[in-house]
Structures are given as C-alpha cells and as structure tokens.
C-alpha cells in the first residue's frame, strides 16, 4: 500500500468541486473518482466526504437532487452551481500559486557566494 497522504485542511472541498466539474455525480461516484485519481493515496473517511458535500450545499456551491442510478437505485446527485464553479476557479488559482511558491522555495538551488 502506498503512503497515505493526510489532506491539508480545506483541500477536500476543492477536490470535490473539481470532481463535480465533470458533471453530476452521487456521493459514491465522487469517492470512487477521487480514489481512482489519487491512486488511493488520499486518506479520507467517507463520512468526511459527505459532510463536505452537505457543507458545500449549504454554502450554495453545490445543489443536490434525488435521481436514479443505472441500476435503478435511488441516489442523491450533486451538481456544481454557478457560484461553485467560480469558487473552484479562484481556489484552483490560489492553490497553484501557493504550491508553486512553496515548491520554489523548497527546491531553490543553494545560494552561490
């Protein structure tokens, strides 16, 4: 099993938004998608994901609706709202700039005299 990466606080929200930018999904689909993408390195309890989903819904970044899966099961589908999409954009920019800065510093060549 690969090393487990515990999530930096607040990043789960962005990851969920990113996942949903591909289209409406239910909770398990999102979990599976994230696991798939991270190669299983993200250590997230499923319950935390659901709490994140509902929190985002409360903030108006997601909307939810009950629908049917391919197997005809009732599931709650989440969609990105307009506000959610905008939020994802700003958060992504911020995240990239942050990581770029951090990695610049961490990988900087030793100062030459």
């Amino acid at each position: 099993m690969p090393d487990q990466l515990s999530l930096v606080k607040g990043t789960l929200d962005v990851l969920v938004l990113k996942t949903l930018s591909w289209g409406a999904m239910h909770g398990f689909e999102i979990t599976a998608w994230l696991e798939d993408r991270s190669g299983g390195t993200l250590d997230v309890e499923d319950s935390a994901l659901y709490q994140a989903l509902h929190r985002l819904e409360e903030r108006g970044l997601l909307s939810a609706e009950w629908g049917m899966t391919e197997n005809n099961r009732r599931a709650r589908y989440y969609t990105l709202t307009r506000a959610g999409r905008a939020h994802l954009r700003t958060e992504t920019t911020r995240w990239l700039r942050y990581t770029a800065t951090v990695s610049d510093i961490l990988t900087a060549a030793t100062r030459t005299a």
């Binding site: 909770g27 398990f28 499923d46 659901y50 009950w66 099961r73 599931a75 709650r76």
Partner: peptide, 13 residues
C-alpha cells in the same frame, strides 16, 4: 433521506 444516502453509499461500496 440522510439515512437513504448513507445506506446507498455503503451498498455501493
């Protein structure tokens, strides 16, 4: 509804 959502997730897992 909350119960349904959790049950569905566990089932799918």
């Amino acid at each position: 509804e909350v119960d349904d959502e959790i049950a569905f997730h566990l089932e799918a897992r």
